[in-house]
Design a protein around this nucleic acid. Structure first.
Lengths: 233, 233
DNA sequence: AATCAGATTATATATACACATAATAAAATT
DNA sequence: AATTTTATTATGTGTATATATAATCTGATT
């Protein structure tokens, strides 16, 4: 940035953030107007605006027209999680990735699955249970339902070659994605697949995606017992 | 925004996002230069810049100086989680919040706790096991370690009145927070506290905070079995 | 041939200005 | 007194311009 000349928006952001950490400004407090702060710090209003917007994005302050900017009364810890293609996640950890399909069939949706899509007439689904391994050890077991009316092309894809996970991410952008994270005991079959005992607690990650109004896929991925989900740096 | 005049940055963002969804631009593709896009759409370069930055924040495109903007080759699903004060979360769901302390003592840190802080000389810690209830039913059980060298004032606080969770959030802003999410089977004691059987899988949420270099607190919160963590919006 | 110094290119940042919009307060009208 | 209109205020957005920075290419120098 500027070597020494004047303040950049990050400097302004740090300045305010520091004051919030200092308790110079406490939760609920009113911050100075953008314009006043700009005058005080010797920079443009736009620069303060940029910094304030960033702080608002971080969930640290709240801005209201006419009401000015206040330090958030009930701060939340905001964590951002990036869910990558399973292959890339495994490879990023330095393991060799392999995967195989345990079961694959075309079915009509079970009501509980239809409910996830908030839909009734889904037509036929492609169901796939697949296992993703890191250095040969089970890492993720995913149950996936693909709406064939929305993604007919997938019928022609060799899903042993490229996983459904990867094919969809690369070929089927979505406009909406619901995510749910929860803990679940392994079923007997899952315990066998994951090579754990049946009492293990597994982290489950459910995702459902749509393109416009059209449902694409629903997936429930359970992870190896030691798995820890970590937000990005 | 502008009623009909010209495009706003959100319009531009939608325009590009739509094209990415269309597969007009596919993962890895190069997008037009900001300036060209501005000319094409009939708006200023700054407007395109604003839209592009927003798309980059969403993790959909990547921008490199001189390299231009490309559609992200390996898109990730980005989920943002807001972890609020437990009381507010319970009240937001329409339940009556109560909490009580199960155990409280001053101790020297166990090595595994010290490791979480990446520190060796932590001095004395205040350990608190507390139970947070929704309409009288166990909702969250938290084990918390507070670094007394960093937060000495907490010794004078009645933590039955205001939970340590809430007091810290309101009185001790942090500059860094590590978060980990995982599944864990309930211990015998936890199962009893949470009024579940010992085989339940529970979602655990661990947080460790610092102000500058000084460690503040480490907390492990386990949730009621049915609990599902849902990203915002 | 290897290396270093510009030139070029595209995005990033800082700033200024005009206008839009939301929220509120004050004034005017009924 | 109640309601509507108008003014004020502070942030939001769009744009233009100047400068900064990073990445890459070109070519001159050694």
């Amino acid at each position: 940035m500027n070597k020494d000349r004047r303040l950049g928006w990050k400097d302004v952001q740090n300045h305010i953030h520091t004051h919030i950490q200092n308790c110079t400004y406490r939760p609920g407090d009113q911050l100075p107007r953008d314009e006043d702060l700009a005058k005080e710090l010797g920079c443009g209003r736009s620069t303060v605006h940029r910094a304030m917007r960033s702080l608002a994005d971080l969930g640290l302050v709240e801005r209201r027209r006419r009401g000015g900017t206040t330090v958030k009364i009930d701060p939340v810890t905001r964590a951002t999680i990036d869910i990558a293609i399973t292959r890339l996640e495994i490879e990023a950890r330095g393991y060799l990735y392999t995967h195989h399909i345990v079961q694959q069939k075309t079915i009509l949706p079970h009501p509980s699955i239809a409910a996830r899509f908030n839909a009734t007439n889904l037509g036929q689904l492609l169901y796939i249970r697949s296992l993703h391994l890191a250095d040969g050890r089970p890492y993720v077991c995913e149950d996936r339902w693909i709406v064939l009316d929305t993604v007919p092309e997938i019928k022609g894809v060799d899903l042993e070659q490229i996983s459904a996970n990867e094919w969809l991410v690369r070929n089927r952008p979505y406009s909406r994605c619901d995510v749910q994270i929860y803990a679940t005991p392994a079923t007997v079959e899952e315990a066998e697949l994951m090579q754990t005992n049946g009492r293990e607690a597994l982290l489950a990650l459910e995702r459902t995606t749509w393109i416009g109004e059209a449902p694409i896929t629903h997936v429930r991925a359970i992870h190896t017992p030691a798995y820890r989900l970590k937000p990005r740096g």
